[in-house]
Amino acid sequence: MAVHAHPDDESSKGAATTARYAAEGVEVLIVTCTGGERGDVLNPSFEAPEGHEFESVEGRLAVRRLEMAAAAEALGVRQHWLGFVDSGLPEGDPRPPLPEGCFALVPLEEAAAPLVELVREFRPHVMTTYDPSGGYPHPDHIKCHEVSVEAYRAAGDADRYVVEGGAEAWAPAKLYYNHGFSLDRLRAVHEAMEGAGLESPFGDWIESRAAREIPEREVTTRIEVAPYFARRDAALTAHASQIDPDGFFFAVPRDIEADVWPTEEFELADSRVPTDLPETDLFAGLREESA
């Protein structure tokens, strides 16, 4: 179970990993906390699908549901909406207040309750989500971390989040944080592109103070996923309102990426089973038990 804040997050964070496990026969469920209805259009060539408008909240929700369905199909996974309202990314100094009723303002137990029930129904052995920073300081990403950790901790306790007729308690065995920013990865790709005589999209940025000041979290687990980059890319482009096919995500030739950085990285946040670090499998410590 991979828990994400908005539609498109599942395609930019750990997507090749979910595609790999799905292809190997693992049941994979993507959980999307909000509808992404306050997300900006980030693709300058985007046009709403025929028969749809994109100006109203309802129109945006409908289009992003279509995009999410196409992305899930590309990855070969199931997907579930929790149904909360996108908080947007307030900007300004001082920042304006968050919109009333948005996901980030929902009390923790109320926000976590549907995820707890979903964990009990789906019964995942492994959950993935964001680290406490959210990966970047979007209020929905931080809230996603909070509700995911709460659900991971509470779903196995039959005395918490009691629902009449609900599923039985279930405790996932492992919790991972997606590994977001990696200066080592950017530098490796940058040097490989320059070595191939190509212009690097990262340029001087990787040596900048801003890059050096972004904290890097521990990597405990590296998953080999190069054969699934195409599925990840198909999922990304499925989010046509969000992802520019000529933009940043596609600036690095895939053969170079596969050569110098063929993995996706995770941080093991908690494990209820013994496992040796570093790992090359999110199910390390679990496959042996079921063998």
Rank of each mutant, 00 (worst) to 15 (best):
A2Y: 09
S12L: 15
S12N: 11
G14W: 03
A15Q: 10
A15R: 09
T17H: 01
T18L: 13
Y21M: 06
A22E: 08
A23P: 03
E24A: 14
E27V: 04
E27H: 13
V28P: 04
I30M: 11
V31N: 02
G35D: 08
G39E: 09
G39N: 08
D40F: 05
P49C: 04
L61Y: 07
V63Y: 03
A69V: 03
A72Y: 01
Q79V: 10
W81Y: 14
W81D: 12
F84M: 03
G88M: 07
P97A: 14
A104V: 13
L105S: 11
P107R: 09
P114V: 04
E117R: 12
R120L: 11
T128W: 01
D140E: 09
H141C: 00
C144G: 03
V149L: 14
E150L: 06
R153F: 10
R153T: 12
K174I: 11
G180I: 03
S182D: 03
R185V: 09
E191A: 15
G195K: 02
G195F: 11
E199P: 00
W205E: 06
R209W: 08
A210I: 11
R212S: 15
R212E: 14
E213Y: 04
I214N: 06
R217V: 04
I223T: 02
A234D: 05
L236F: 05
T237Q: 12
A238R: 02
A238C: 05
H239L: 07
I243N: 08
D246A: 14
V252A: 14
D255P: 00
I256H: 10
D259F: 08
V260M: 08
E265A: 10
E265W: 01
E265V: 02
D270L: 08
D276S: 14
P278C: 02
